[in-house]
């Protein structure tokens, strides 16, 4: 019984710590305010917080308990698409936080063509992902 109580305590506190850490990471990369700024929907920030809460809870239940959710290929495609968009935004945000692009542009004294650089970044990421997945599909 004591062991069970101790396990429950470990579970609860590690859950709190993990979520705080992960969501501090998402927030410090600025995902939500970027999206809210881009779509001009800043008044809905609270709603986005709630949605992140539910998304994380659902995702955690899925991965911890291996719950079966028979949504078929359509469901898988939807999950893939939107988590892909999310990862893409996070990846670019990470590049931006590290200031890799501004520093590079300054070093090579590039004034124009920022749009091309961004497009190349996106295409590069897509190519990388495709190469990785194609290997899995072929072998």
């Amino acid at each position: 019984m004591l062991a069970k109580a101790f396990l429950a305590l470990i579970g609860l506190t590690s859950g709190i710590a993990v979520s705080a850490g992960i969501f501090a990471f998402i927030i410090s990369l600025g995902f939500v305010e970027r999206m809210a700024g881009f779509t001009r929907t800043a008044p809905y920030i609270r709603l986005y917080e709630t949605v992140i809460l539910f998304g994380a809870t659902a995702g955690n239940l899925m991965s911890i308990y291996h719950i079966r959710l028979p949504l078929g290929r359509g469901g898988a495609a939807i999950f893939g698409l939107f988590s892909g968009i999310f990862t893409g935004i996070l990846a670019i945000a990470l590049v931006e936080i590290l200031q890799a692009v501004p520093i590079l542009l300054r070093r090579v004294a590039l004034r124009k063509g920022l749009g091309c650089v961004v497009l190349s970044l996106a295409l590069g990421k897509m190519t990388g992902a495709l190469i990785q997945f194609l290997q899995g599909w072929i072998s």
Binding site: L47, S63, I64
Partner: peptide
């Protein structure tokens, strides 16, 4: 529509993030 779109991305993104974490460190 825009709010809904951001919500969907945030929902699946948050789910994806926690799942990758759980898988990465093998929480189970």
């Amino acid at each position: 529509l825009l709010v809904f779109l951001v919500c969907v991305i945030a929902f699946f993104g948050a789910a994806f993030t926690i799942m990758t974490f759980n898988t990465d460190v093998d929480t189970g």
